[in-house]
C-alpha cells in the first residue's frame, strides 16, 4: 500500500519534471501551454492518487482537488492562449498554417 503510493508519487514527479522541461525547450508560447497544461493535469491526478493510497481517509478531499484542477486548468490555458494570440505574440517559424489569422483578416 505504502510502496504503491510512493511509486505513484515518483511517477508524478517525473511528469512534472518533463512538463517543466517542455516549458523551457518549446519554441513559442502556444507549444509551451500545450506541454505545461497536459502534463501538470496528469501529474496532479497521479500525486493525489498517491497521497490517497498513503492516507485512505483523505480521499474525498483529494478528489475535490482533482475536480478543481480538471475544471480550472483547461480554462486558464485557453484564456492565456487567447490573450497571447490577441497580443500578437509570434507563432514559431515551424508553424504550418494559421487559419485564425485568415478568418480575422479576411
Amino acid at each position: 500500500m505504502e510502496m504503491t503510493g510512493a511509486i505513484l508519487l515518483l511517477l508524478a514527479s517525473i511528469v512534472f519534471l518533463v512538463s517543466a522541461l517542455g516549458l523551457v525547450r518549446m519554441p513559442d508560447v502556444y507549444n509551451r501551454i500545450q506541454t505545461s497544461t497536459k502534463a501538470t493535469t496528469l501529474g496532479t491526478i497521479l500525486a493525489m492518487a498517491a497521497v490517497a493510497f498513503l492516507h485512505p481517509d483523505w480521499t474525498p478531499k483529494l478528489a475535490l482537488v482533482v475536480l478543481f484542477i480538471l475544471l480550472t486548468n483547461p480554462i486558464s490555458s485557453h484564456v492565456v492562449a487567447r490573450a497571447a494570440y490577441f497580443k500578437r505574440v509570434k507563432l514559431s517559424d515551424r508553424t504550418v498554417e494559421d487559419q485564425l489569422k485568415d478568418k480575422l483578416e479576411g
Partner: peptide, 23 residues
Amino acid sequence: PSIPDRVVAFDTAGIISISVIVV
C-alpha cells in the same frame, strides 16, 4: 521573453505547488 510566457510559467509553478503542499 513575452508576458504570456511569464503567465504560463506562473500557472505551472502554481499547479506544481499544489502537489508540493499535498505531499
